[in-house]
Design a protein around this nucleic acid. Structure first.
Lengths: 224, 224
DNA sequence: CGATCGTGTGACGGTTGTGTGACAAAAGAG
DNA sequence: CTCTTTTGTCACACAACCGTCACACGATCG
């Protein structure tokens, strides 16, 4: 028996979803607020969570982030908003899927099955990339040097993640401008400056970088 | 580095997807038929697969089922059909997600990230061409001699890559001038000079080169 | 054997690429 | 709102790199 938790403030929609899910053979429970949903999931963990984005008090994004801190349950957003920006934000917050209202129950259950098939493969709470004594946790938004947190700015963090995601590979200034800043054209000096600032924070000897190295004429790369 | 395989018969859509994915930092390869896609995935497994439903010959559903037999790579359907029945069928066949054309690239990449977060992240390692104790990694922008990094300049690196990409074949000075420097006309001495400098760095005995050899009157070649 | 062509190499000035400090605009915190 | 932090721009200095040239040397051929 599969249990589903539905976090949705609109009573009619929540009840309709609960009924439809039970009709399909699920055990379903509802919550009208994020706080209530988080509490229920903590006390009686369900196998799947459906969550609306527009909730009173804590909104859906925040609800997802908090639930993700200590639970790997598949989370599906069910929202009236059909906008790329919302979808991306919800997935980045930790959601696994996003459905636009009104939802077809058959599609919903098919997607829940697909998610459960994937399984809760991940047991490690957060994954970090390691480069010597440098750790970069993309999900935790954190950089550590010899175990100690390093305060990096948002731009520096994105730059570092982009380099880490392509560890060992050269990225040209142009690629970095495009991927980190979204500029299709711009002053490549900008990249230099931020690389320099990053080096001050993450390199033992910023003048002789061991990780964030320059490949003259090619670009930068991050190596282990 | 994350590799994505795009199986889509419409050339324009396939190319657009490949370009957009590369822009976002993925390595992307395409296939126009299900058969070709299955073959590619068997020989060079990608980390994610995008597949269209309407394909000539084997259709998308069958393609998914066959791929699922021996690969649990995350599969995302990208289809023009926005119908619950199709969505359910695709998910039942083994797909992990379903997007309706036209797709927003940002949403697509966010969903790919979400999927990879679920499964174990598979990334393709950096590759290098090997010539005896000489290794040339185009993506890492690096040349190694007996395992040790050799500092080469940008021009030397490009020259070496060009020769390595045509390993064992002679390239005339003119071809090299054109491909490495972009000169359609110019002093061929230039090539000699750079070949010489390169030999100093990568050959044990630069006076008697074993890899970067001269073919008098013809040009140069790189041999294993 | 001598003339000629093709190739290797050292040296040198001009150019380009990169790092950095200073500064102003913009964003964010209080 | 003000103060602080972050971000982007600019100018400049320095080092690395590039292309050119001159010349030496060996191969090739008549």
């Amino acid at each position: 028996m599969t249990a589903v938790l539905v976090i949705e403030d609109d009573d009619r929609i929540r009840l309709a979803l609960l009924l439809a899910l039970e009709e399909e053979g699920y055990t379903a429970q509802g919550a009208a607020t994020a706080e209530e949903g988080l509490r229920q999931q903590r006390e009686h963990p369900a196998d799947n969570v459906l969550v609306d984005l527009m909730l009173p008090g804590l909104d859906g994004y925040e609800c997802i982030r908090r639930m993700r801190r200590d639970d790997d349950v598949p989370i599906v957003v069910v929202s009236a908003r059909d906008d790329t920006h919302d979808i991306v934000a919800a997935l980045e917050a930790g959601a696994d899927d996003y459905l636009v209202k009104p939802v077809a129950v058959k599609e919903l259950t098919a997607r829940l099955r697909a998610l459960r098939r994937r399984g809760r493969a991940r047991t490690t709470p957060v994954t970090a990339q390691v480069f010597g004594d440098l750790e970069i946790s993309e999900e935790a938004g954190e950089v550590r040097k010899a175990g100690r947190p390093v305060p990096v700015t948002r731009t520096e963090f994105r730059l570092l993640c982009e380099l880490a995601d392509h560890a060992g590979r050269v990225l040209s200034r142009q690629q970095l401008l495009s991927r980190v800043w979204g500029y299709e054209t711009g002053d490549e000096r900008l990249v230099d400056v931020h690389v320099g600032r990053l080096r001050q924070k993450i390199e033992d000897d910023p003048a002789n970088p061991r990780h964030l190295v320059t490949l003259r004429g090619l670009g930068y790369k991050l190596q282990r």
